[in-house]
Design a protein around this nucleic acid. Sequence first.
DNA 1: AATCCGTGGAC
DNA 2: TGTCCAAGGAT
Length: 351
Amino acid sequence: MRDGDEAAAGEALLAWYDRAARVLPWRVGPADHATGERADPYRVWMSEVMLQQTTVAAVKDHFHRFTTRWPRVEDLAAAEDGAVMAEWAGLGYYARARNLLKCARVVAHEHSGVFPTTSEGLRALPGIGPYTAAAIAAIAHDEPAVVVDGNVERVVSRLWAVETPLPGAKAALTDLAGRLTPARRPGDHAQAMMDLGATICTPRNPACAICPLRPFCAASAQGIADSLPRKAPKAEKPVRQGFAFVARDGAGGVLLERRPEKGLLGGMLGFPGSGWGPAPEFTPPLAADWREAPSTVRHTFTHFHLRLRVFAAQAEGAGFTPRADFRPAALPTVMRKVWDAAQSALSPHPE
DNA sequence: AATCCGTGGAC
DNA sequence: TGTCCAAGGAT
């Protein structure tokens, strides 16, 4: 990209978006924008939070369930914590769900159910950082906010052939993204950048041959697009080990515990177990004839690999969740794997 | 500033 | 199988 080409590149991007925009459940298309229709801030907010570090394909089902069950922010604000966490199960990064609920309650109770309309106002809400605030303001209100996510970092780093590695290059890339942000249709511009990054300017094997920005792209001209953006090497993931205990009573009830609000899988349901580390202790929650499941659960979190030995037993006691109140789908994925592994060791109650 | 925080799909 | 990585935010 040469100085002075920003406006032409922006126009080329919007022209491409007008014919190639993805159709998404939370999106109002460019043709509808022409009639003055704007996206619903509640739905934009919901989708943006779900999409943080998460693929469109993974978000679609959860977005549909959330917006069907809680159509307005007041509905979500009135929901029980456990119901929201259960619906979020499987999406990961569970602090997002806790902050989603906090944010809904602030908007409902302190803003009369209306989201702030500026990026500055949005930024003050729980779970809304620089990216999400800018995205909502641009998409829902056409504020010319500079929207910088992973897609934008990639597109911009290639347009200007920025070879400084991330995250160090973050500030420079934000500055360059600002040069590209137009005063006209900034919301469509932001969504166009993301669509371009998702479908053409992809991390691997970018489709430069059909890219509307190719005439402006320094990395494409130099043949180095697929090597940008550079990133600092990541730390190796250690392996941690642990035990998990699945107890069922005679009525088919299940022994579950609510995990602490903070930390890994915070606020989610799980099975009792040991700590996770190099040498975990065998500490079942009650005395019973514990039998080990034949398969070990393997699961990878953001910063470590986990191997869990699963033990199952029939037992009686207080605090079991009734069979009718338990759905494996309400568990975080690692706990759903534990449940699946336990079934072969719990012959009287196969599920 | 660096670390923590999930998951599933692509390759 | 293992590695990368996707519309980041909080602390």
